[in-house]
């Protein structure tokens, strides 16, 4: 067994995940090994069914591999209990979804405070940190608005603030611009780039090459395998 290399944030080794669909076994992820260093901005690409979503779910500790190993920031997470995985998701990972997944009846501020509810943060600190996170995404003045009173781009920025509020090591974004128009997509990508320059590691799933070109590295998946791993000069969005 290879030990976990130093100075990496993510190391996965021979990660495999398969599902049984009737009599067939589907290899959603087949023997994938990859290392991501702190501060990288990685785009994960591939057609649907390529295994990129399965890969993201495993990175996000929402799913467990059938075999293989996964170290996040030096900690082997594959064997952790369900509660310990919840704690990892809470403290070390921020999720951004295609459909934002904001609670519709809660204000932007309440939505951003939600991860801190599960982190045992005091109420006063929750407000302070949530306001800081909203400020970081440029939505401080909309803190009291509900999601329905915000545009799609603004909703996604609230979701990003929510992902950032517990100071995670890793931001996992699953098609974050999939529901947005081109101009707004650029805005959001620009925000990701600014956050990345401030040090946060980003792994972003997309099927759009126009989005992937803003990343510093692109992983290509097909049929559950990692087929290409390219570093590139990222285009600057804004």
């Amino acid at each position: 067994m290879v030990s976990e290399p130093a100075h990496s944030l993510i190391t996965v080794e021979r990660l495999t995940r398969h599902y049984r669909m009737g009599p067939q076994i589907v290899h959603a992820l087949d023997d994938v090994s990859v290392t991501v260093r702190p501060g990288e901005f990685v785009a994960v690409m591939g057609p649907s069914g390529s295994g990129k979503s399965t890969f993201m779910n495993l990175l996000g500790c929402l799913d467990r591999p059938d075999s293989g190993r996964y170290w996040l920031d030096g900690q082997e997470v594959a064997g952790l209990s369900s509660d310990a995985l919840a704690a990892v998701r809470n403290r070390s990972i921020g999720f951004v979804f295609q459909s934002f997944n904001l609670l519709p009846r809660q204000s932007a501020l309440d939505n951003v405070m939600l991860p801190m509810v599960y982190a045992g943060v005091s109420h006063a600190q929750r407000i302070e940190r949530a306001l800081a996170a909203l400020d970081a995404v440029g939505l401080l003045e909309r803190a009291g608005h509900r999601p329905t009173q915000l545009s799609g781009g603004q909703q996604q920025r609230v979701a990003i603030a929510r992902a950032l509020v517990n100071d995670p090591l890793l931001l996992l974004a699953d098609e974050p611009t999939g529901a947005l128009d081109t101009a707004t997509s650029l805005e959001i990508i620009g925000l990701f780039q600014r956050l990345n320059r401030r040090g946060i590691t980003i792994v972003l799933v997309t099927h759009e090459p126009e989005v992937a070109r803003f990343a510093s590295r692109v992983l290509h998946f097909r049929d559950g395998r990692l087929i290409d791993d390219l570093s590139q000069d990222a285009e600057v969005a804004a």
Binding site: D83, A86, R89, R91, F95, F97, L114, Y118, R162
Partner: peptide, 16 residues
């Protein structure tokens, strides 16, 4: 269901 999924993703334990 989606709210529950979200809560689980951002760190809610099953007990929560």
């Amino acid at each position: 269901t989606r709210e529950i999924g979200l809560r689980l993703a951002i760190g809610a334990r099953r007990r929560d």
